[in-house]
Amino acid sequence: MNCEEAIKLMNGYLDGELDPITNQAIEKHLCECHNCDQAYKTQRSLISAIGNAAPYYKVPAGLRERIRSSLREETEGEPMRNGVPGAQVMFHKRDPETRSMLSEIPWNWLGLAAAIILAAIIAFNVLPRAQRGGPDQFLATQLIASHVRSLMANHLTDVASSDQHTVKPWLDAKLDFAPAVVDLSEKGFPLIGGRLDYLDNRPVAALIYQRRKHFINLFVWPAGSDAAEATKAMTRQGYQLFHWIDSDFNYWAVSDINEKELQEFKQLFEEQIPRH
């Protein structure tokens, strides 16, 4: 085998897609030819770099659920909404289960009365208490609990480092998403480290920043497709929460510093994260 042939078949060799005889011929050539062997090694490291470093995007839990419910609807032969078949129906995202449940209620008068009672029962008893106060209320409680817990024991950080290049790879390796990590030391909010947490039924990244003697937990997870709500600030149980989203992520900053400072933190963070 000559160099030209070897280079031509190199990718097939690396991918294990050649027949045994051609494989042997390439191996023999690589032993004899330094240049081709170098080319082979370069290519091999490129391939492993892609496999190791490029993120793998798993299906978000919410999407999996949406797909399952749309399959159920499809099977039950629910009539297409607005008479539009196909694509339009595929894109609806709002809680199809509730809708199909309501559509099964018989709409005669007696039925209507029963339905009203049923709806009341569902609203006041069946739905989780937390949801009545709004999903934000529930989430806020979880966020504060998580923030407080992180400060109680020695468990503020899983990876303690002010170096974003240490914190980020650590988080990337443990999560199915890659949050942006920036250090804001120069702006008075030094990065302390990162931590894994579990919120809103999913693993999330917690970035810990310091403001004088106070800590800020910045919880980050991928933005849901329904995440259209604007930036908001709230005070709960004496803690400040600040929420915003960008094209990729949901951010919740929790701290006991004041609202103005938390807002400043948010602005600095946003200015520093790389755009893509």
Partner: peptide, 14 residues
């Protein structure tokens, strides 16, 4: 982009 790909995955699965 996540939103677009979510839509497309849902459409393709259906």
């Amino acid at each position: 982009n996540r939103d677009d790909s979510d839509d497309v995955v849902q459409e393709a699965t259906l």
